[in-house]
Design a protein around this nucleic acid. Structure first.
Lengths: 224, 224
DNA sequence: CTTGACATGCGAATGATTATCAATTAACTT
DNA sequence: AAGTTAATTGATAATCATTCGCATGTCAAG
C-alpha cells in the first residue's frame, strides 16, 4: 500500500522551465544560476530565483543539461549534457569547453584501489583565459560585463593599496569593500586586507561598520 | 612611501596553529574544517572555529598542508601537501588518497586550447568506498562515527518513506527533517521529499512549522 | 469541472565560510 | 629584560549560494 505514495513522475514543460532551458542553450556559455537568472528576467520578469535553481536542478537530473561543480565555487550549468572536460580561468573564473582528441579519462584500474569501486573521474583544467592573459591594457574595470568577471593582474600590496586609496579618494560617500572591489577590479578579499592595513596606518577611517573613507593623512599620501 | 604600508610578512607559530597542524597530521585523513574543529576542541576547548578556518587557509597558502575542493561540497584538508590524486565516495563523501604509478595529469597541450594558457589540471575520481560497497548489513545508523558519515544505500521511495515513518513512530516529540535524516541515515533532502509526500497522503502531520508527527493513519499503515 | 500531482513565487532558513573588532601575543628591536 | 608592533585570537555578525516551507497556481486526466 505504501507503493501508492510516490512522487516525481513526469516532467511538465512549463513556460518558465522552457525559458530556463532555452536561455541556457541560447547563451552558449557556462553561466551560474544567478547569471542565468539575470538573463531570464528579461524574458520573464516575474520569475523567481528559486524557480531557476529548481529547474536547473531538475533539468540536469533528467540529463537535459549539465551541471558543473568547479573547484569549490558557484555551480555552473552547461547546455550540453554530453561528457566533455572544461577549463576554468583562475583569474576571472570563466569556464569553457575543452575537447581534446585523446582519451579524456585516464584508465581506471578495474581492480579496487584503496578498496574503492571507482566509477569514474572528472578532469578539470585551469589556467588563464585569453582575456586574462593580456598584459593589462588598463586597470579600470567598470561594472561587470554580463558573463565574465573583470580580469585583474596580480599586483603588489603597494599597488593594491594605492588603488584602494584612489578609489576611496574618488568616492563621495564612505564605501564598503564590495564597492571598492568593483571599482578597483581587485578581489574583495584583497581589498579587505588592504583596507585593514590602510586603516591601521591611519590613511583611512571607518565612520560606520564596514564602510571606509579616506583620511587627510591618506589624501596627503596620494598627493605626495 | 606607500611601501611602508605592507603586511603579512611572517608566519607566527602560535599554539593554536601548532595544534591545528598537529591534529591534521595526526588524524591522517582528509577532514573538513569542522570535523577537525571537533578534534581540536578536545585539546584546546576554547579555540574558535574561525581560528581553525583561518589557520587551515594560512597553512595551505604557505604550502604546509593541502586543500581539497571536491565537487562543490565542503572543503577538506590534507596533511600531505604534495601532489597526488584523490577518490571520494559518492555516498558517504569520504575522501582517500589514490596514488597511481603512471602520470597523473594528462599531457597538457602546450599550444593554447581555446586561447587558454593552461597551467594544470585536477583529476578527481569518484566511486564507492569499501564501507559503502557492502550489501547493507543494517540500515540503522546511529550518530555520526567521528569522521565518516553514515553510509546509506540508494533506496526506493517506498523504503525511504517507510524508514521516515518508522522513525516518526519511534519519536516521542514531533521531529524536524534533520533529526529524521540522522535517525534514518538518509539525506535530509530525501527525508524532506518523503515528508512532503507523506504529509500529502495524510500519514503524517505538521503540528508546527518544520516539525512532523505520525498520524493514526500513518500508524495503521505501519501496522498493516 | 473536480482532483491531485507538479510548479511557482515569495520569503525565510540553512550551511559553509569569511569579516569585523577589541584584546592578546609572538617575535623583533632596542 | 622591556618596549614595539604587526600577526593572531575569540566571539559574533555578516555573507553568499542554495534550499526549504508554504500558500497558491496550473494542467492533464478522470
Amino acid at each position: 500500500m505504501i507503493e501508492k505514495v510516490t512522487m516525481q513522475r513526469t516532467l511538465r514543460m512549463t513556460h518558465q522551465r522552457e525559458v530556463v532551458l532555452h536561455e541556457l542553450r541560447r547563451c552558449q556559455m557556462h553561466p551560474t544560476a544567478d547569471e542565468l537568472y539575470d538573463l531570464i528576467k528579461k524574458k520573464l520578469p516575474r520569475i523567481s530565483l528559486a524557480t531557476v535553481y529548481r529547474n536547473l536542478e531538475i533539468l540536469s537530473e533528467a540529463g537535459h543539461i549539465g551541471k558543473l561543480e568547479v573547484s569549490g565555487r558557484q555551480k555552473r550549468f552547461d547546455w550540453d549534457p554530453t561528457d566533455h572536460s572544461h577549463v576554468f580561468c583562475v583569474r576571472c573564473h570563466r569556464v569553457d569547453n575543452l575537447d581534446f582528441p585523446g582519451l579524456p579519462c585516464p584508465r581506471v584500474e578495474p581492480g579496487q584501489n584503496q578498496g574503492y569501486e571507482i566509477s569514474g573521474c572528472r578532469i578539470e583544467f585551469f589556467g588563464l583565459c585569453p582575456a586574462c592573459r593580456e598584459p593589462t591594457t588598463q586597470q579600470a574595470s567598470q561594472g561587470k560585463p554580463a558573463m565574465e568577471s573583470a580580469p585583474s593582474t596580480p599586483e603588489s600590496t603597494e599597488d593594491q593599496q594605492r588603488q584602494v586609496l584612489e578609489a576611496l579618494a574618488n568616492s563621495a560617500a564612505p564605501s564598503g569593500s564590495k564597492e571598492l572591489a568593483a571599482a578597483t577590479g581587485l578581489e574583495s578579499k584583497q581589498v579587505s586586507n588592504q583596507l585593514t592595513a590602510l586603516k591601521k596606518k591611519g590613511f583611512i577611517a571607518s565612520p560606520v561598520r564596514c564602510k571606509y573613507e579616506i583620511t587627510d593623512q591618506g589624501i596627503s599620501l596620494l598627493g605626495g
